[in-house]
């Protein structure tokens, strides 16, 4: 059974409809790339997968999102439980000020009730290694997370999301603030993560989408124009608008 199944999802900000009747499925161990021009609804879509959209004033939606066999919008489902199982990396780095690097990474573990120092230390190191930040911060774990550079902060946020080992990870342009070396490392990480989890990643970088994803979704003005195997979307797009977008001829 597919891990993620979205059925007829529409989402609004007040009166404004940002997503129009989206349906797509993703299997376990897949990387799904979301591409499309700015403002087409990629972030909104991602935020519907962990019930964050409803936290925006005026944010509401219709349709179903199934994660691991559960409709997360069914009545009685607690959004807190949904979010525990879904890691999220935001478009802008948002480490918690007032928390050290260590605390930033361990905060999700603590929320999950883990408080043994040794366990925390081990998981923090593992997450920081995965996010390619360990070598840079291993001696300064007590420093505030906000004292890091923008790119380091983003990797810190990636580590924060990884630490609780959620089965689904949502990444909203995780590498847009990173240098090419860190970007390459994060892409490697995503390939590794695939062994265990499903990754949904928003990217403006076509090469990145082509390199790392198994499936690609092309959004335009709130609609899902095309969704399919990445090789196919990039080599033989079914829709002419997709072709124009990926070849950079979009006007």
């Amino acid at each position: 059974m597919e891990l993620i199944a979205v059925k007829n999802l529409s989402a609004w900000f007040g009166e404004f409809q940002a997503l129009k009747n989206i349906s797509l499925v993703a299997e376990r161990h897949e990387v799904v790339a979301l591409i499309g021009p700015s403002g087409c609804g990629k972030s909104t879509f991602v935020r519907c997968l962990n019930r964050l959209h409803e936290e925006v004033p005026g944010g509401h939606l219709q349709g179903e999102v199934w994660l691991d066999g559960q409709n997360i919008y069914a009545p009685g489902v607690d959004p807190v439980n949904v979010r525990r199982g879904v890691g999220m990396v935001f478009q802008k780095p948002n480490p918690f000020p007032g928390m050290s690097i260590f605390e930033n990474v361990s905060v999700g573990l603590r929320l999950a009730g883990i408080s043994k120092r040794a366990v925390l230390a081990e998981k923090v190191e593992q997450a920081l290694r995965q996010a390619v930040l360990w070598d840079e911060v291993k001696d300064v774990l007590k420093r505030p997370g906000t004292s890091l550079s923008g790119g380091q902060q983003q990797r810190l946020c990636i580590a924060r999301a990884l630490a609780v080992e959620p089965p689904v990870i949502l990444m909203d342009e995780p590498t847009s603030a990173l240098d090419p070396i860190s970007t390459a490392k994060i892409e490697e990480l995503i390939q590794e993560l695939k062994e265990r989890v499903t990754v949904v990643i928003v990217t403006h970088n076509m090469q990145q989408a082509a390199r790392i994803s198994d499936r690609t979704a092309f959004f335009l003005l709130g609609e899902l124009v095309e969704y399919g195997k990445t090789d196919q979307v990039f080599t033989q797009p079914q829709d002419e608008r997709t072709e124009r977008y990926i070849t950079g001829r979009f006007g």
Partner: peptide
């Protein structure tokens, strides 16, 4: 900033957390 509230909620924090 709102982004910090979302970061916490995204980690599965309850409203109080």
């Amino acid at each position: 900033p709102e982004s910090l509230r979302e970061a916490a909620l995204g980690l599965g924090a309850t409203r109080w957390e």
